[in-house]
Amino acid sequence: MVSTVSSAVGHFVDREAISCFDNIEKRYGDEDGVTTTMIKRLNDYRQNFEVMALAGGLGVLAGLGFIVRDLVRILPNRDVPVPVDLADVPHEVLLGGTAAAQATEAVIRVSELGPVPYTAVLTAALLPTLVLMLVAVCFAVLGRSFASGDFFAPGGLRAMKVTSITLVFGSVVIPTLQVMAANSALASVGVHFGQRMGTDWVLFAAGILLGTVWYAFRRGARLERDTEGLV
């Protein structure tokens, strides 16, 4: 009997993932090793989700730190560091005075930027951090709802959808803003060479992937709703 219950529980866990940790523990908890191991495994999953939520929260805090750092660097509008892409005009440099290397990126420092270049530089610096913070928030929300056993919580679905759309838009907007900022900074120091426009394909792929996961979760939520109250 005990082994039947244990195998039924094991089967339930594998097929349905984990939907209600506490109920399983109360309903099927027994003294034999198999079920105890299974309950331990469930609790481990829950701990993983809690760690996921915690990591998301820490990501948000780290993002806030980066934003403050960038604001401190940029807001005074003096010696503002602006990354510049040198891929089209690579520069030879000597590392340590002996090793020859090719620089494809550089940071120039500019001061007294006009309102438009200043806005472009500020936005280009802050936007990647904001996007990463949004991803961290999404992780935190999902981790929290997974840990509570509610895999299809509306909050989690919304977070996934918003993050996915932001990642796809960010994959185009962030590189564009960075090129605008670099061009503005170069123009302000009287240097002119074109910056290459591009798309951040990693962000784009991440956005599309998250969008696909969101779609699957949305279908799951619908199925869950449909089977609610089914006997």
Partner: peptide, 15 residues
């Protein structure tokens, strides 16, 4: 539990 749901008219669908 499921029969109780059915008995108390809380079921929304039945196989």
């Amino acid at each position: 539990v499921n029969l109780s749901v059915l008995k108390n008219d809380r079921a929304r669908a039945i196989r």
